[in-house]
Every structure is written in structure tokens, then in C-alpha cells.
Design a protein around this nucleic acid. Structure first.
Lengths: 167, 167
DNA sequence: GACATATAGTTGCAATTGATACTATCAGGA
DNA sequence: TCCTGATAGTATCAATTGCAACTATATGTC
């Protein structure tokens, strides 16, 4: 492992700029801004709204909780995105006949038109983000991000477990 | 509800889960949450406050705009973090004798104690995040993130340039 | 059928963040 | 000196997000 010394010895030398989580955050913010500008500027879509539309896509009818499962958003987030999209008339909500707690969400014609318009744009951005990376580098990047992400999720789990015990 | 029911246009199929910027965001959120929980739960520090403290560190006296330069935060963010840290008595603000617009910020004793306490904890998290990556993998990950980040920053620049031209 | 429990989704409140505009101070001429 | 423009930092308002409490349906047990 490349970490220079043991963790108690180099307090003096702490540099935010070379702190891994800081770099991740700056990286993530840049990527996120580049993509979200596209759908924000063009259609005033927030990230949650975009994700909701992206998951529904063409010909999909899903309940809010199915969207939650596929989007790494929580239900509050989805609920609000749905409201906003209904207001814009990009999305229609019906009630499930078999379980009246459930909603049946799908894009409207108008929403679908936006979706069709936005997809190629965000794909272009996606391509531009990785244009100078070989296919192999892209694969490696994704694999390493996943590994780190799993570690992070493990840590988060541990912490909330401790918090639950602690009290 | 089958996607496959009507998929004459499968080429057009868009899967959020395999969209690169989406993955980056999920990755970033996980990493960020893992680290920020440490200083949030222990000292109620926000990300901006933590960054500000991390940059000041030991024996550093900086102005707010010097913190801006080193933190990828904007000045509003820094200004608010400074206020919050003063209220917690983690940070002291004086006025620069030579340029009375400038502040001279440094950690108090109390702030320094917190800093000394937090640093090993966040370093542990940093180490845990990458524990199953070889030194080489870590270096590759950082290098690839930087490349993508540069691309993203380029795109953001183009967009705001266009926006300025546009209308 | 009635009660306890779980699930789907919404609402309200508080903390964070971002964009814009504002105040105070400085620096460089005419 | 006075004017202009830059710089340092603050204040204001709107959008986003997270947490917890709430309503409504459904399910399982007796």
C-alpha cells in the first residue's frame, strides 16, 4: 500500500489536496456538473428528475418504489421528482388497480419527446468524458471505482451498526 | 412490465445503471458519505468546515481567499464555514494589518485539538477505502480520474462559453 | 371481522448549496 | 484629491437534499 507512513505520525503533513476522498469529490463534482448542465439548461431538469425519466424511458410503467430500487435515490427524492415531472407534464401517474397504494408511472408523449431529445446529448457528454481513455482504461476505471465503492459501503454499514449499538 | 415487449429499437435503449456519469455519482456519494460521517458524527462538522480546518491545519494563518484557492470551494462557502467555525470556537479571525479587507484565519487551541483528533480517523478511512487496491491500482485510479476530470472541466468551459455567446 | 404490523407514498422542517447582489477596502491614474 | 475599477468578504433568496413524522392501503393472525 502506498500510504506513506502510519496514520498517527504525519499529522503535520496533512494536505487536503492529496487526500483521496477530496480528490474523489472534486472529480465527481466535475463529471456531474458537465452532464447535468445539459439537461438542466435545456429542460430545467434536476438530477432526480432526469434519473426518473431515464429509468422510465420508453414504454416502461413503474411504481415509485421500483424507481427507488433502480436509481439509488430514496423515496422522498423520487416522490418529489414525480411531482415536478407531473407539473411539467412529462409524466403521468395512475393508481395500480391491484394495490391501490402503488402508483403506475410512465412518461407522457411530451416527456418522451424530451427523453428522445436528451439521450443523444448526454451520450455525447458521456463519450467526451472518456474520449482519451482506451477501452481497457475505461474498464479498469470502472472496476476500481466499484472496488472502492464497495469498501465505502462496507464502512458506512459498520458505522451505522456501531451507532445503533453505541446508544 | 417487459422492456422486451416492444423493442424494435433496442439500439436506443438507455440504461441508467450503466451510464458512466451515474456510476461516478454513486461512487462519489459513497466515498463522500464514508468520510464525512466521521467528522460529522464526532464534531458536527460539515464538509466545508472540515475542509477549512484541514487547510488551516497546524500553525497556518490564511485569508479566506487563500482557502478558496486551495479547497475548490467558492468564497461564499468559505465565508459560511468560517462563521460556523467561529461560533464553535474552532477558529479565530483577525484582520490583516496591511490590507484591511483581508482576514487572518487560524485554528484556536480547541480547533487544533479537534483537528489532531480527526486527522488519524479520516486517514484510517482513506486507507480502508483503498485497502484492497495495490499501489499501482491506486495510482492508475487517480490518473484516470484526473484525465476524466480534465475532460469534464473542458466541457464545462465550452458550455459556459457557448452560453455567453448564444442569445 | 378486528387488531397489529408492514408497505407505498407524501408532507413539513431544517441543513446545505448555489447564484446574485451588496459593502468595504485598496490601487492606479488624471 | 477624486474617480474608476478591482478585490475581499458578507448577506439574501431560491433550489436541493435529508430526516422524521404522517396518511392510506394492504396483509397476516387470532
Amino acid at each position: 500500500m502506498m500510504v506513506t507512513a502510519n496514520n498517527t505520525m504525519d499529522k503535520e503533513d496533512f494536505q487536503l489536496g492529496s487526500f483521496f476522498p477530496y480528490k474523489v469529490r472534486v472529480f465527481g463534482t466535475a463529471v456531474s456538473t458537465a452532464v447535468s448542465s445539459v439537461y438542466r439548461e435545456r429542460y430545467g431538469l434536476s438530477v432526480s428528475e432526469w434519473r426518473t425519466m431515464a429509468i422510465l424511458g420508453r414504454n416502461q410503467a413503474l411504481s415509485a418504489s421500483e424507481i427507488v430500487e433502480r436509481s439509488s435515490m430514496d423515496k422522498v427524492n423520487v416522490s418529489r421528482a414525480v411531482q415536478a415531472l407531473r407539473k411539467k407534464e412529462f409524466l403521468r401517474r395512475d393508481i395500480d388497480g391491484e394495490d391501490r397504494r402503488k402508483s403506475v408511472l410512465r412518461l407522457t408523449e411530451k416527456g418522451l419527446a424530451v427523453f428522445n431529445d436528451v439521450i443523444p446529448l448526454v451520450r455525447d457528454v458521456e463519450a467526451a468524458l472518456t474520449e482519451n481513455l482506451s477501452a481497457e482504461e475505461q474498464a479498469v476505471l470502472l472496476k476500481l471505482m466499484e472496488k472502492v465503492q464497495k469498501n465505502a459501503e462496507g464502512l458506512i454499514g459498520e458505522m451505522s451498526a456501531e451507532a445503533a449499538n453505541g446508544a
